[in-house]
């Protein structure tokens, strides 16, 4: 379980995060929802140790972040973050070289599924293709947790469909997934838990299934309540 407790972050005199707490469990898909600039990406980066926090704690399976844990968590950032001149095959080899938890077979299968050529150069990929390859890099690891930052933003419909298909497959099943988005749209039926961020704190956090059955509200309904108010 990913446990985030009371994390704070200041950026240029603005309290971006003001005591954010939530959990994301293994086997569940948790979605961090918030408006643009709400700090969703920052939370993911903080969990991944890519940015420091000024207060609070982050624990993954009870441990604080140490380099070894990177074998167990993969991060799919909003952009591909690989050198433009690198070929896809070289990027895959990079991952294989450095991660013990890299599953080469699965990576190849995903490449075929997404119809990506090994000889393509990173710089020449379209946004949709890059997003797919990003996912390959993330899913190619036998990790327990998968963090995704805006996986669908700016992606064309067909790429989106392909990615959604992966989400429902067994590739995701046993992992804990934490993703961020500001447009819940067609993702709603995928997620198990929603965490709504407003003004630097968690405004609401609930299991989607329960919310629907007990209060008859969809995630979008709750969002309207929180953000329109």
């Amino acid at each position: 379980m990913i446990e985030v407790k009371e994390i704070r972050k200041r950026y240029r005199r603005r309290d971006v995060l003001n005591g954010v707490s939530f959990t994301a469990a293994k086997g569940e898909i948790t979605c961090l929802i918030g408006t643009n600039g709400a700090g969703k990406s920052t939370i993911l980066k903080a969990i991944m140790g890519l940015t420091p926090v000024s207060g609070g704690t982050i624990h993954i399976d009870g441990k604080t972040l140490i380099p070894e844990l990177y074998e167990k968590i993969s991060f799919v950032p909003d952009h591909l973050r690989m050198p433009a001149s690198m070929k896809l095959s070289e990027a895959l080899r990079f991952m294989a070289d450095f991660y013990d938890s890299w599953n080469e077979k699965r990576a190849d299968e995903l490449m075929k599924f997404f119809r990506l050529e090994h000889s393509f150069k990173i710089g020449s990929l379209s946004k949709g293709t890059a997003a797919k390859f990003s996912l390959v890099l993330g899913l190619g690891q036998d990790s327990d947790y998968l963090l995704l930052d805006e996986p669908f933003s700016g992606i064309d419909l067909f790429s989106r469909e392909a990615i959604t298909e992966v989400f429902t497959s067994d590739l995701i099943e046993h992992r804990g997934v934490l993703l961020t988005t500001h447009e819940i749209g067609d993702m709603e039926h995928l997620i198990d838990k929603a965490v709504l961020l407003k003004d630097g704190v968690v405004s609401q956090s609930f299991q989607c299934e329960e919310m629907r059955s007990e209060e008859g509200k969809s995630v979008i309904d709750v969002m309207r309540e929180v953000y329109r108010a």
């Binding site: 890519l50 380099p67 973050r81």
Partner: peptide, 17 residues
């Protein structure tokens, strides 16, 4: 530099910084 900030990947490697 650029959109492909490789530093992300380097910082996420399972090795001491």
């Amino acid at each position: 530099m650029g959109r492909h900030t490789f530093i992300y990947r380097l910082l996420m490697l399972p090795t001491a910084r």
